[in-house]
Each structure stands twice: as C-alpha cells, then as structure tokens.
Design a protein around this nucleic acid. Structure first.
Lengths: 149, 149
DNA sequence: ATACATTAATTGTCTATACATGAATTTGTT
DNA sequence: AACAAATTCATGTATAGACAATTAATGTAT
C-alpha cells in the first residue's frame, strides 16, 4: 500500500519529506505487529530486543551500558528494561568484579526458552512484514544505510 | 554508516531480519534529530505531525478521529495530543454542529506561525537526514511501499 | 417509541522514550 | 595521598504508545 493511501495524504513537499514519513510510518507498522506477537509472552518489542542482545553474547555477561550501545533506540533506558526482564526471571544481574560501577547482565535458561519458542513465529512474521524478494531487500538495506550518511 | 556498526551486531539471521532492524534503527535516528529541532518550540514530533495534518486541511475543521486516521502511528492518542496543542494555543476545539459526539479541531494563527518558523529548518534537516540523490529516494519510497504489501 | 448496537471521544493504566539529575566508583593529575 | 574529572548506573519527570474501559450521542430494528 502506498504511503499516500496509508495516511490519506495526497501530496508531499518533496521526495525527501515523503521518505521520512514513509520510514516513520513503516516502523510503526512493524512495531505494532511485533507487539501482538510478543504480547502472549509478556514481552514488549524493546524487551525482546534486549533479550536478543544478551543471547548474542553466548552466555557471556554484558554490562548495562553495552546493552544500551547495541539497542535500536539509543535514547532508550536499558537500566529499566533490564529490571523488567529480571522481574520476569529472564535475566540476572551480578556486580561486575573488575568495576563495581558496572553491572553484569546475563540471560537465564528461562529467557533462552522464551526466545526459542518465539523463533519460528518471528521468522514467519519477518517475511510477512517485508514483502520483497531477496534482491530488493538488499537494495533496501543499502539505501537505508546510505541515507543515514 | 552500516547497520552492523550502528548497533554493533556482526551478523543477522537473514536479510529480512536485517531490514526490519534497519528500519527500526533508522526511525529512531530520525525521530531523535527531529525532537531536537522541535524542542525549542515546545513541540514533540507527534504534536508537530498533528499540526501538519491540520494545516493540510486549509482551515477546514477536522474531527479527532480523522486526525487519528492520518497519523503516522495509528495507535497513538489524538485526543490527548490535541489537548496538549490546545494548551499551547496552537489549536481550538469546537463542538461539531452535525454530530455532537464529534469534536472539530482547527489550527490557530499561532499554530500556523510556528509551522512557518519551522519550515526552512525542516527542509534543510530532511536533506541531512536522507543522504540520497533524488533517484535513490524514489527507489527507497517504492521499496518501503511494496514491503508493507 | 423503546431497546439495542454502533460510533466518537475521553480517560485510565502500563510500558517506553527523552532528558536531566544524583550517587557511587574509578581514573587522572598534581 | 588528595582532589578533580569522568564513568556507570539508577531514578525522577514529562510525553507518547498500546490497549481497555467508559460515557455520550447517534443509528437501527421491531
């Protein structure tokens, strides 16, 4: 569906303005579908993202600030998201032995299980969310990378 | 900057997964810059978006639900955003004469002035936010439109 | 005309973003 | 060693997103 229909706006100032609107709208489109998928597991999209980052560490602990740097939204608040995940038993916090300012975060077995359960559903949803062939997706990725300079 | 560097993630499950991450990251990148620009005017990106929708009506009133349908984020809360804008004197609310359930919203002179002041800065920022040539932007827009099916 | 369903908007609640501030700890400098 | 500066994280506040519940007005069927 063209962005013009999606937000009922016939004309844009220029193609750059339209691209920005298009990116913002598409993000909202994606996040809204992700929310529905994660909801039964009591996870928000950002909480899922943090779990995914932790899994990527292969059971090595990672500090709160390292999580922050890897998050999609740099302005987000890793400290609070970690706290939510801890309450659900999906992560544990440990004092960092070499620097007591830092806090080591590690994903639990339970957290890994949740990711495992979600795996196939996410794979399928991703394909529905991006209805392009492989070549087109590559171009999209390159254009987005380039656009940010 | 490639998305791999931006979030310090070397590999992705596949290009579709990478595209989703890329869209979400790029949105956050854009919104964060927009926030800085709007901040001196006491506007959030979504409040600006509502003002822009109202301006697009050429001084015709528009109901809260019509605003909602035109918003980038369909799950947002137009009612509350309008209330914030009203407090700042940028919009007025009037009871709809044909249906008293509805509320007509109209942008004020003051609201139009704010948009006017922002106009040039937004034009310049859009170009910085999307560092592509015209042809590339068109492709990006088409791919995003197609991706949503 | 009454009963019932539908629609429009507001409000409440929880989570997250954006940003500022504060406390504890570490690091760098003299 | 003493002190300033930088860092790491937690926390407070305002705004916004996600979604449910509520209220008021309108539409519809019998």
């Amino acid at each position: 569906m063209k962005i013009e229909e999606a937000i009922q706006q016939k004309v844009f100032k220029d193609v750059y303005n339209k691209a920005i609107v298009n990116i913002l709208y598409t993000q909202s489109f994606i996040v809204s579908k992700q929310s529905s998928l994660f909801k039964p597991f009591g996870l928000s999209p950002e909480q899922y993202n943090v779990l995914r980052i932790l899994k990527g560490q292969n059971n090595n602990p990672i500090t709160v600030s390292s999580i922050q740097e890897r998050m999609l939204n740099k302005m987000s608040n890793a400290s609070r998201l970690v706290e939510k995940l801890k309450q659900k038993g999906y992560v544990v916090r440990e004092e960092c032995p070499t620097d007591r300012r830092q806090v080591d975060i590690r994903i639990t077995e339970e957290g890994l299980n949740v990711l495992k359960e979600l795996e196939n559903q996410i794979y399928e949803m991703n394909r529905k969310l991006i209805q392009l062939d492989e070549q087109e997706v590559e171009i999209l990725n390159n254009l987005l990378d380039k656009s940010r300079g």
